[in-house]
């Protein structure tokens, strides 16, 4: 009996084999699960529906796709109202990739040391890194704004990448540290016994093993850089502003009227790649999020 219960209570979602007339508990679970899924998808669904709706029917409340058009996506990329959306997409991509690469370049080594080596002050280093990520963006923006104004960096890419590193690097180090703690480090010892130096063992044995962890961390780092708004809204210019800033200040043809269908089209373009990425790498991202537990 006890083994039976144990196997049924296991983590696999194996369906119950025994037939019952109707399982109310299970039904309640499914209803709750459905409510959660609807909660998560409904506003996003509304965004997509609106993105494909003719602008004359912006406030149509039909639940399904009606007055279908692709004009909004054309309008999103049009330069007529001074929205440089295509450029903003490129900017976000460029800033995100640079930030991620720099953060990983530094973070991988720090995380390896924190997860693997014994040294004095490890506690302190972890505290400093976690503390660094806790400073609010506004605490950084004032001095950076003044500094970048003085040296003529306002609106340059480096003025947008550097501040992003302030929160992406701690996130990277934290997530990687907790991933690295779970790796099969006996293999490193084995490599050492076979005559590798510690550096060689790191490069030839550990790096390939760590690739999935690094990849997941890269996704998290990229998403947090892609979603940043506060610092870029102050430190960017028209030519370098990322998509989040571009969407927040999207101009339409009519003054005093938000061009919502166009904005929703832009929002869809910005969001869909993220959603696809998240759905594809769901397991890894959840693991990374709960491990790093930042943002």
């Amino acid at each position: 009996m006890s083994t039976l219960t144990a196997s049924r209570k296991g983590n696999t979602s194996a369906p119950e084999i025994r037939k019952r007339p109707f399982d109310w508990g299970q039904a309640r679970t499914y209803i709750s699960a459905a409510v959660i899924v609807i909660w998560c998808f409904l506003p996003a669904y509304w965004m997509v529906v609106t993105a494909f709706r003719q602008s004359g029917f912006t406030y149509d409340t039909t639940f399904f796709f009606t007055h279908f058009t692709l004009d909004n996506f054309v309008a999103t990329f049009s330069e007529a109202q001074g929205n440089h959306f295509a450029r903003a997409l490129g900017n976000s991509l460029f800033i995100g990739i640079c930030t991620t690469v720099i953060a990983l370049l530094f973070g991988v080594f720090a995380a390896y040391a924190l997860a693997r080596l014994n040294f004095k002050g490890k506690f302190l280093v972890l505290g400093v890194i976690l503390g660094a990520s806790m400073f609010p963006g506004v605490a950084l923006v004032t001095p950076l704004f003044q500094l970048f104004t003085n040296i003529g960096w306002i609106g340059t890419y480096q003025a947008l990448i550097l501040p992003n590193i302030s929160f992406v690097l701690p996130l990277t180090i934290y997530t990687l540290t907790s991933f690295f703690r779970e790796m099969p480090w006996e293999l490193e010892e084995a490599a050492r016994i076979d005559g590798c130096t510690q550096g060689q063992a790191f490069r030839k044995v550990i790096m390939p093993l760590a690739a999935p962890a690094v990849f997941t961390t890269a996704i998290l780092a990229f998403i947090s850089s892609w979603n940043e708004f506060l610092l870029s809204s102050q430190l960017s210019s028209d030519a370098t502003k990322p998509v989040t800033v571009a969407i927040a200040s999207f101009a339409g043809s009519q003054p005093h009227e938000e061009p919502y269908t166009t904005i929703m089209a832009a929002a869809t373009i910005v969001t869909i790649p993220l959603i696809i990425m998240v759905l594809l790498f769901q397991r890894k991202i959840v693991a990374g999020l709960t491990a790093g537990a930042v943002k």
Partner: peptide
């Protein structure tokens, strides 16, 4: 434990992944 738990866990990541700036515009609408 139930069938489709994977879908549920993927679904909860959707609001998290949407940039806050986009969320603000969406709810503004």
């Amino acid at each position: 434990a139930f069938r489709g738990r994977g879908l549920l866990r993927a679904a909860v990541l959707v609001p998290w992944a949407i940039p806050t700036a986009v969320t603000a515009k969406l709810w503004g609408f």
